[in-house]
């Protein structure tokens, strides 16, 4: 994997929130490269800005200053609408609480991102079945989220994240709501996505065990990014 050109390049990113008249700095001059096919874990105490940073990389929030270049595109320069299209094509999302739509079946949840793709009905079906096959849920197509365990729901969410075959997957505490066994399953699945499908994964996590699965661990503290001394590259 080494030698590849970075797929994500952050240069001097600053981000602060306005709370009333108060300006709360969250990210302070962050510079970070992530190479294609890497599995990066972002750790740090609660409130240190991990989610904020992830959102910036994934194009669901805008930085105050700095450059964010993802797969050769300066996403800060995109309009809201362009950004929406860019996310649909390039980024898969995995959330702590799965964020499945409860009234849709597993199949329909995974199909959701494809509604924007213009694929034929048959092609969509194939994609969805493939994605659910990867996460080993081919026998749960017609189940609703409420009928699945937390681990299974998160696997559906992973299928939804990969169904459009995006280059980058962002995961915000994907095991934060799971028991150990399920968490282990999810992490193995994510490793497979990197090794077998060549995805780039950026994962925010609290859990050191989860971070161990990653190639690189970075720590965010008080808005500043530090390399992990025990990074297992």
């Amino acid at each position: 994997m080494n030698g590849k050109r970075p797929i994500v390049e952050l240069r001097n990113i600053c981000k602060s929130y306005q709370r009333g008249s108060q300006n709360i700095p969250v990210l302070n001059d962050i510079t970070l490269d992530i190479k294609g096919g890497e599995f990066l874990a972002l750790m740090g105490p609660s409130g240190s800005g991990k989610s904020t940073l992830l959102n910036l990389i994934a194009g669901i929030d805008k930085a105050d200053s700095g450059v964010i270049n993802v797969a050769g595109i300066d996403i800060a320069a995109l309009s809201e609408t362009e950004l929406a299209g860019w996310r649909a094509a390039n980024v898969g999302f995995i959330f702590q609480f799965y964020n499945l739509i409860p009234v849709l079946t597993a199949f329909e949840n995974v199909e959701l991102p494809l509604l924007l793709s213009g694929l034929s009905k048959k092609e969509k079906k194939e994609h969805v079945e493939t994605a659910l096959g990867v996460v080993n849920l081919s026998d749960r197509l017609e189940h609703y989220p409420g009928e699945l365990s937390g681990g299974q729901q998160q696997r559906v969410a992973i299928a939804r994240a990969i169904v459009t075959d995006p280059a980058i997957i962002v995961a915000d505490e994907p095991t934060g709501d799971l028991d150990r066994v399920s968490a282990e399953e999810i992490l193995e699945l994510m490793e497979r996505l990197v090794h077998e499908l060549g995805k780039t994964i950026i994962m925010v996590t609290h859990d050191p065990r989860a971070a161990q699965k990653a190639h690189i661990i970075r720590h965010l503290d008080k808005g500043v990014l530090n390399a992990d001394p025990q990074a297992n590259i």
Binding site: A84, A88, F93, F95, L112, L115
Partner: peptide, 13 residues
Amino acid sequence: IGEYAVFKTLGFG
């Protein structure tokens, strides 16, 4: 509101 945010995240306008 969270679900609508998910739709938007996925690229829905």
